[in-house]
C-alpha cells in the first residue's frame, strides 16, 4: 500500500458517499445516470468475486464489501425508492455498446484464460468506460448540479491517483500491470474535459454549464 493508492481508494469511497448522500438528502436522482451506476455495480461484482477465494488484507476485504453494498444501495435508491425522479429520457446511452466490446476484449487480451481472470479483465475494461453514460447525460442536459460535479471530480481523481500508484509501484517494487494501466489511462482521459470545466467553473462557484 502507498499514499497514492490510499488516496485513490479514499477518493473513490468519497465519491460513492457523495452520490449516496446527494440522492438521499435531495430525495432525487435527477442528473444522475442510472446506467452508469448499473455498469459500476457490474464492475464491482465481477472484480470482487475473489472476496470469497483470496484474502489479501482486512482493508481490502472491507473496502470491497463497502463498494458492493454502496453500489447496491445506490441502485435501490435510483430504481426503486426514488424511481419517479429518474431521468429516463436523458439517460439513453446504449450500454450494450460498452458491455459487448469489453467482453470481447477481455476474451482476447488478458493475463490468463481462466474464469476469474477473464472476469477481472472484463471488469477493468468496463470500469474505464462506465462513466460514459453519466458524461453523456451531463452533456445532454447541458449542466450538472454542483454536488454531482463533486461526485465526478472525486471519481475521476481516484483512477488518476491510481496512475501515480502504478508509477510508484513500478519504481519501488518493479510491479506493473499493463491491462490495468492502459484502462486506467483511458478512464482518466475521459474525465479530462470534465476536470477542465470543474476547475475553471465549479471551483469559482459557478454552475457546471457545458458549452451548448
Amino acid at each position: 500500500m502507498n499514499i497514492f493508492r490510499l488516496a485513490g481508494d479514499l477518493s473513490h469511497l468519497l465519491a460513492i458517499i457523495i452520490l449516496l448522500l446527494k440522492i438521499w438528502k435531495t430525495r432525487s436522482c435527477a442528473g444522475i445516470s442510472g446506467k452508469s451506476q448499473v455498469l459500476f455495480a457490474i464492475v464491482y461484482l465481477t472484480r470482487y468475486l475473489d472476496l470469497f477465494t483470496t484474502y489479501i488484507s482486512l482493508y481490502n476485504s472491507i473496502m470491497k464489501i463497502v463498494f458492493i453494498a454502496a453500489s447496491g444501495a445506490t441502485l435501490y435508491l435510483m430504481y426503486v425508492k426514488f424511481k419517479a425522479t429518474y431521468d429516463h429520457n436523458h439517460d439513453s446511452f446504449r450500454i450494450e455498446f460498452l458491455l459487448i466490446p469489453c467482453v470481447i476484449l477481455a476474451l482476447i487480451i488478458n493475463h490468463d484464460f481462466t474464469v476469474m481472470e477473464i472476469l477481472w479483465t472484463f471488469s477493468i475494461y468496463l470500469e474505464s468506460v462506465a462513466i460514459l453514460p453519466q458524461l453523456f447525460l451531463v452533456s445532454k442536459t447541458g449542466e450538472a448540479e454542483s454536488i454531482t460535479s463533486h461526485y465526478l471530480f472525486a471519481l475521476g481523481s481516484y483512477r488518476a491517483l491510481y496512475l501515480l500508484n502504478w508509477i510508484y509501484r513500478y519504481m519501488a517494487e518493479s510491479h506493473y500491470d499493463l491491462i490495468a494501466i492502459f484502462a486506467g489511462v483511458v478512464q482518466t482521459i475521459l474525465y479530462c474535459d470534465f476536470f477542465y470545466l470543474y476547475i475553471t467553473k465549479v471551483l469559482k462557484g459557478k454552475k457546471l454549464q457545458l458549452p451548448a
Binding site: 481508494d9 475473489d50 481490502n60
Partner: peptide, 10 residues
C-alpha cells in the same frame, strides 16, 4: 520485472 499476478488492488 514481474507482471502483476495476484490482483491486490481494489
Amino acid at each position: 520485472v514481474k507482471q502483476n499476478r495476484e490482483h491486490d488492488e481494489l
